[in-house]
């Protein structure tokens, strides 16, 4: 009872503690509700051969990464060497989801463009970019209108999903992958998922 005057101090310290914890959180990282849920099924045209389709079911039984990218995405350039390095080490297959290659580019007006023309342009741009920066992907698919992106809850590029052999999303990385992210979080997760399933 004698230390009653200390009560406001402790209340303040408690509040300050909560606020300090809040400062360490990143409000841009919205937790995905899709973790541990089946990845949304999709079938999309491939960048290397748009006549061929690739679907989620093709990866059944494999642990793999789905990396969302686009040639207009600046942060993708930052993470790209990390993916190229990962591909050289042959640790885990990475499938590229090319997100709104044409209509996502703010410097381009894709209005009124026919879908065929847009697909053609997207293929050309994606290939050119992969030619310039290296292609770490097992293959890339074209999400022309971003619909598959919405199904995956993509709200920015790049994003990366870890998908297990049963087609479940096990982890989501938001933003560019740094070498540290890869070594300390993603690769251990890949190992964990492989052991589990």
């Amino acid at each position: 009872m004698k230390a009653k005057f200390l009560v406001p101090l402790f209340l303040f310290l408690g509040l300050a503690g909560f606020l300090a914890f809040g400062l360490t959180l990143n409000p841009r990282e919205v937790p995905s509700p899709l973790i541990d849920k089946p990845a949304p099924a999709f079938t999309l045209a491939r960048v290397d051969d748009p006549a061929q389709q690739f679907s989620l079911a093709d990866m059944r039984g494999k642990v793999w990464l789905l990396n969302v990218w686009a040639s207009w995405c600046v942060a993708c350039r930052q993470e790209h060497p990390v993916l190229v390095d990962l591909a050289h080490r042959n640790l885990v297959p990475v499938v590229g989801l090319n997100y709104k290659e044409v209509r996502g580019d703010g410097q381009l007006d894709a209005r009124g463009m026919a879908l065929d023309a847009e697909t053609g342009l997207a293929v050309e741009r994606a290939r050119r970019w992969l030619g310039e920066h290296g292609n770490p992907y097992m293959l890339s698919v074209l999400d022309i209108d971003g619909r598959v992106g919405i199904d995956f809850g993509v709200y920015g590029v790049p994003e990366t999903f870890l998908i297990d052999g049963n087609g479940k999303i096990r982890y989501k990385h938001i933003g560019p992958i740094t070498p540290e992210n890869l070594q300390q979080v993603i690769l251990p997760k890949v190992e964990e998922v492989r052991r589990a399933g």
Partner: peptide, 8 residues
Amino acid sequence: LVARYGDF
């Protein structure tokens, strides 16, 4: 939308 992006 909630199924894809969460309650956020």
